[in-house]
Design a protein around this nucleic acid. Structure first.
Lengths: 190, 190
DNA sequence: TTGACTAAACTAATTGAATTAGTTATAATG
DNA sequence: CATTATAACTAATTCAATTAGTTTAGTCAA
């Protein structure tokens, strides 16, 4: 070790905080370095590029969200658990806009590390959905439905894309009603 | 007029084509200029910045998608029409990845021009949903549900985010089943 | 305690894209 | 045919990312 010894974790946490504040697109090495009180080339002792940071941010986000999702589903089951988990998702993504942006654009499923980062949240979804009277193939499809809706809704909220003045919370609740009722309509089928 | 006189439309169409090929993040003025056989500073006679192009791309995309959506819903009604429209959406967004990226990040509803660009697609959704036995407030919420799902699903597909080998088309179909059944379960309520 | 080793900082230099400034050529119009 | 405005051009600037090469300071073995 030598000098300050800024840890890799500190860099990612700092990047997360900054990107949540200014948006992932505006995150720069300059900004991160200033926040850490070092010069930007020094960052290269820890990371290999700005894109590298963004990829680490993606993994960081999925892991952190995984933890929150687990917590949210403790002591509940079935559709109650599903609903709680969806709230946890929404809560995390809208309170961590920058990290969520990274989670979106970089979730290409390429690395082992990425698979590990998402294992928790997929595990929970399986645990919630499998006891229901739904074919295992349909469980996989339903997980995609949920992911699509949750990521899409969060994105639209974060981008301020809902022009209408009506309540966003009501929209989220009603959407969950729709999706859950839709899933119920599938129970026992095939 | 003077010289070649490259039109604004040509710039946007070229940018659309290029961004679909290389991704919005990799779109550069250099690349656009080369494709048009001019030097990149010359572009500033037509546009004000790269971001300006991206914003125009967003508007271009929503307009084009609006046309396709209208075509898709001709001669059908109710849930059939809804389903057709969803397919048209999916079809457009997955065949125009770059433009769709612009549509996503820039749909902040700020300008009048943006409102005009989306007026068609919202109009269709209203026309499809309003005859159903659903309160007008819920129609607004349902539109948000649909947007979220459609944008989210397209995003995941474009990013290759579905790790599982199971069929994407089946997932889309089943998702529509779920959402439509969910909407049906709301009919007549309140 | 010291001296070698190495991690991690630094400064200086390079690259490359976006943008700006200032100049020139050509099409249209009268 | 001369004027004018548009839209091209070249040259210069800026700024972030990255690379190259150098220095500093903890660590650890003798």
């Amino acid at each position: 070790m030598a000098r300050n010894s800024i840890s890799d974790e500190l860099i990612i946490e700092t990047s997360a905080r900054l990107s949540n504040k200014v948006g992932l697109d505006n995150l720069s090495l300059k900004m991160i370095a200033e926040e850490l009180d070092i010069k930007s080339p020094s960052l290269y002792n820890h990371i290999s590029s700005l894109d590298d940071i963004k990829e680490k941010l993606m993994i960081y986000g999925w892991k952190e969200l995984g933890e929150k999702a687990i917590d949210s589903a403790v002591g509940v089951s079935g559709y109650d658990a599903l609903r709680k988990m969806c709230y946890a998702f929404y809560d995390y993504t809208t309170n961590n806009k920058g990290v969520f942006q990274a989670m979106l654009w970089y979730n290409k499923f390429k690395s082992e590390e990425m698979a590990n980062a998402t294992i928790k949240i997929f595990g929970i979804l399986h645990k919630i959905l499998e006891p229901l009277n739904i074919s295992s193939n349909n469980v996989e499809h339903i997980i995609r439905t949920l992911r699509s809706f949750l990521e899409g809704f969060s994105l639209l909220v974060n981008n301020n894309s809902f022009g209408n003045p009506i309540s966003i919370k009501e929209s989220f609740d009603l959407s969950l009603d729709i999706i859950i009722n839709g899933i119920k309509s599938l129970e026992g089928v095939k």
